[in-house]
Design a protein around this nucleic acid. Structure first.
Lengths: 205, 205, 205, 205
DNA sequence: CATGAATGAGTTTTCATTCAT
DNA sequence: GATGAATGAAAACTCATTCAT
């Protein structure tokens, strides 16, 4: 069931792996700086120079580890996708055999918490441009969530698990609409959560 | 260019007529080209030169009609927002006094049809950068949809119309995930529609 | 016999063709500047900024017509190769039916004159890097010179025309050794010319 | 090749012996890597990092032995020039008193063999940039070859030995045209050899 | 000696915008 | 109006060289 595997390669491919402790710290700092700026101004509007400066590094250092701007985004996303994958993996044991509604709540909360921690994930996965690595990340996520719903008791209608695996993460994107005031955003989030629950608990099938 | 002399202007007007028609066609072509490229590569990654080329015009022509790139986007969005506004307006009479569920279906379908026709709307409203005109468009949309739900019979709980006005358009963003195959996208759309309906028809406890 | 054809494409491919008189002059100036600098400091050591400055143009103008540095070199070479090709073409009528020695002298002189006029040709064709367009230029030249020798009377031994087509241009490269003082270079050139003549006029076959 | 200086540290010498052997191997590897890359892509286009990587060393190691890139090229050329010089020296005894034609053949073959073994020699001596050390190498070579021809019996016309000393090495550059297929290159080499011979054996009129 | 991270000046390249014709 | 040449500030990216470990 190791769906999460095979992506360490993605990270390695996108960035030159540092071999010393200092290098590893640098890479972490650079990624954090990039994540922050991508969220704040978007991928295109963020410059490599800014990222390096934000991380307290020289532009040369940045390019030492990340040979191009797209590869930096890819490396960052690979790491974030791994984190999310791990969190979803952890739900497997907890939700197996539960009702679809309960599973939905669990997934919903896990995603909400993850996106609150890592807003760069949403900023990058929604960015224009259909790179294959982005598609790969989406597919992995879909398979994982689909697997969670597939174990619902009572079982869902055939095919519905797959559709839910597509719908639920998309519902999450809504929390990102940063332009709305915070209380309104939470009201929306709550509404969506309830909506999903109602849908799955609908009395007569 | 005479200033105040009767029908000299008329003569000029007649000879100008085809030119104005040509100008309008030009503007339409440029906007269409911009819309297509914004959807394909995003606002930032699209260049003014590309837009002109795609429209079969020169870069000079493009700047003749749209003095800056943001203003081009804004003009495009203004037109699209008007179209959407008109369509929503048309729902007022049709849905007044209906159930919230029925209204939701109507709004849902109107939005889905509109976004299918004009994917640039979503591409631009979601682009990073918080211009005030973008906010204004969102607010207008929210007020319009809120007004629709406000007339539901039986009436919704206080405040829920506003939340729905926020949630429903966001649900629509999901249909944009162009990377998914068409049948899957429609399954998702149907699921969301049903979800919304279930939510609104939920038996009050 | 239109060996010289098919290369206008190369030029067009490498540079955006200017459409106005001013543009055409600009392109010529830029190419001349590039040619001069390539000869003086070599392809790699010449910067695009220098070329633009030398031509009295902005860096943007340079890139308007030549999208990359290698393509600038390619466009320049395509033009020079066309010039050379034309000159060799002109020898066809003059040398047909003459002795191999006489043909050799004619080719030798034509090449020497061409290289004196266009030292950039040698600088670029000898530069490292085996681009296919460079190979194409060499092949075209070889075929043209081979065709000249093929019409020698009395005829050369089979295959020798091809070998000479390879040897003679290479002999010319020697004149480029710019580090030697001018009189010495001319002595060398004369010696090579005589050497070639002796070789072809060698009494007993 | 004074890498480690003096002998003040004879005591340490013993314990250092294996290390020095390793050092010498390192230096040789680095030079070989540099030579290969210079031939393949030219001096300018080859980076120090590439050279180190190709030699399986770190960039730090490379700079430990060669303080700058030009000095690396110079050291490499010094070694190659010594090798060539030794080979030419060996011809002195063999060719003394022979005919100019025989001497030409001997020099020709020696140069051809040397360049086949060490293509980097030609790549570097032809590279743009007129460093004095390059000029020095050329002068040494010219003097050596001139000395060989000066001992021809019967003697050459005055000044011709010097011209030949310039011409013959240049003839050799032709063998470098690596883009041609091997058999053709050998045909060219043979033709040149014969040409030189004919020239020198030309019956005096 | 060895290593690999770090640097930053210098280069190539892009693109919104202006301007002469 | 229309066109396409022109601009230059700003961005991406390179690489010889230095330095801490």
């Amino acid at each position: 069931m190791r769906i999460a595997s095979g992506n360490a390669d993605l990270t390695v491919a996108a960035s030159r792996a540092p071999q010393r402790a200092r290098g590893r710290r640098r890479v972490a700092d650079l990624m954090a700086a990039a994540a922050g700026l991508f969220v704040e101004k978007g991928f295109e509007a963020t410059t490599m120079t800014e990222i390096a400066a934000q991380a307290g590094a020289s532009i040369g250092s940045l390019y030492l580890f990340f040979p191009t701007k797209p590869l930096l985004a890819q490396a960052l996303m690979a790491e974030l996708a791994d984190t999310l994958s791990t969190r979803l993996e952890a739900l497997q044991a907890l939700t197996s055999g539960q009702s679809a509604g309960a599973i939905a709540d669990a997934v919903f909360d896990a995603l909400a918490a993850f996106l609150a921690d890592h807003p760069a994930y949403a900023a990058l996965i929604d960015a224009p441009g259909d790179d294959s690595w982005k598609q790969a990340i989406r597919i992995r996520r879909r398979l994982q969530i689909g697997a969670l719903f597939a174990r619902a008791v009572p079982p869902l209608a055939p095919g519905q698990a797959e559709v839910l695996a597509l719908v639920v993460p998309q519902l999450m994107r809504i929390t990102l609409q940063t332009s709305e005031p915070q209380p309104l955003r939470e009201a929306v989030l709550g509404e969506l959560r309830k909506m999903l629950r109602h849908h799955l608990d609908w009395p007569l099938k």
